[in-house]
């Protein structure tokens, strides 16, 4: 939103007043607008068709009781689907589980990724190999990763339990994904394995953008390693960390494929996410109206978070970008 108002600065009153009588400039401006419109149109049409229209359609369908057959729904029920959501144990559970995963991701996965990124920034033998190895899981498709881990965590023949038994830790063996009380943590282990490499790479990139003069200067001033990290590296990594948190939270809200293949949301809904519940209602129960309501709530949660986060947390980072654009115009 900010970008839009700033980009069409010409319509702002103070500038408009100054240029009111300036005819050639106005014609030029008009022609420029025509060019912009012509260039934007194809993308805009596709965007409307593929992004805006489905959102509006989902919004519309969420107000109906609809089994998905026929072209458009007819049985209008107002906001009943939404009131039903807040009595739905599974949906409310989804919110809690989503929150748990977000807290774990931001509290455990990202610090882990940051730690490894800083370690891999140190000069050491085989650094490139380590970087590659840690990043590799992110390249693997979600489905392959999930199938792999259903085997690793298989209660009887799984690698995890066998290794624990072999090193004398029988007490730690578990039924992992098959137990309602451990399934979320097991899921989180898989998520961490799958995604921490991505955050590691962006943190590493952020760390390498920090000039070594800064840390050297701090060292000369007598700062110890912790102080350098706490007062120099960490603040300078701020923008990278903030975008990392943002991607992590949005990704967790929309988590589907990993869970779907790993557990299907089970046992007894204890690992369901919003997206899995939506799929279950839409494609297994044929309650497309209700499923649309879930998707609308997902959309609203993501949107509110994204806008709020950009407004309050990433404000400085984004302002920098826009100021830069203004200068280039």
């Amino acid at each position: 939103m900010d970008t839009m108002t700033r980009l069409d600065g010409a319509t702002e009153p103070r500038e408009a007043g100054r240029r009111a009588g300036d005819r050639p400039a106005r014609r030029f401006r008009l022609r420029a607008w025509a060019t912009i419109a012509a260039f934007l149109l194809p993308a805009l049409v596709l965007f409307c068709l593929l992004v805006v229209a489905p959102i509006l359609l989902a919004l519309y369908a969420s107000l109906f009781k609809w089994n998905g057959f026929g072209v458009l729904p007819t049985d209008f029920i107002g906001l009943d689907n939404f009131t039903r959501l807040f009595e739905d144990e599974i949906f409310l559970g989804d919110l809690w589980r989503g929150l748990l995963l977000i807290v774990l991701s931001v509290g455990v996965q990202l610090p882990l990724a940051l730690g490894i990124a800083l370690l891999l920034n140190q000069p050491m033998r085989g650094r490139a190999v380590y970087r590659l190895l840690f990043f590799a899981p992110y390249v693997v498709s979600e489905v392959i990763a999930a199938v792999l881990f259903t085997m690793v965590f298989s209660p009887e023949q799984g690698l995890a339990n066998r290794i624990l038994t072999a090193i004398g830790l029988e007490g730690l063996t578990s039924t992992w994904l098959a137990d309602p009380s451990t399934v979320m943590y097991t899921l989180f282990i898989v998520m961490t394995w799958k995604y921490f490499g991505f955050y590691m790479i962006i943190f590493l990139a952020g760390r390498q953008a920090i000039p070594s003069e800064v840390t050297e200067a701090a060292a000369i001033d007598g700062a110890n390693t912790w102080q350098i990290f706490r007062h120099v590296t960490l603040p300078l990594l701020g923008p990278t960390i903030r975008i990392g948190v943002f991607l992590s939270v949005i990704g967790t809200i929309q988590l589907f494929d990993l869970v779907w293949v790993l557990t299907g949301g089970g046992p007894i809904h204890t690992s369901e996410t919003l997206a899995v519940t939506m799929f279950q209602y839409g494609f297994a129960r044929y309650q497309v109206g209700y499923a649309s309501a879930i998707s609308v709530v997902m959309f609203i949660i993501s949107l509110v978070f994204a806008l709020g986060y950009q407004r309050w947390v990433m404000r400085r980072d984004i302002e920098g970008a826009i100021t830069g654009m203004k200068d280039h115009r």
């Binding site: 009887e156 992992w176 137990d179 399934v183 557990t263 089970g266 046992p267 007894i268």
Partner: peptide, 9 residues
């Protein structure tokens, strides 16, 4: 049922 049947496919 077998061990871990709740998660079995």
């Amino acid at each position: 049922f077998q061990t871990g049947f709740l998660g079995a496919a």
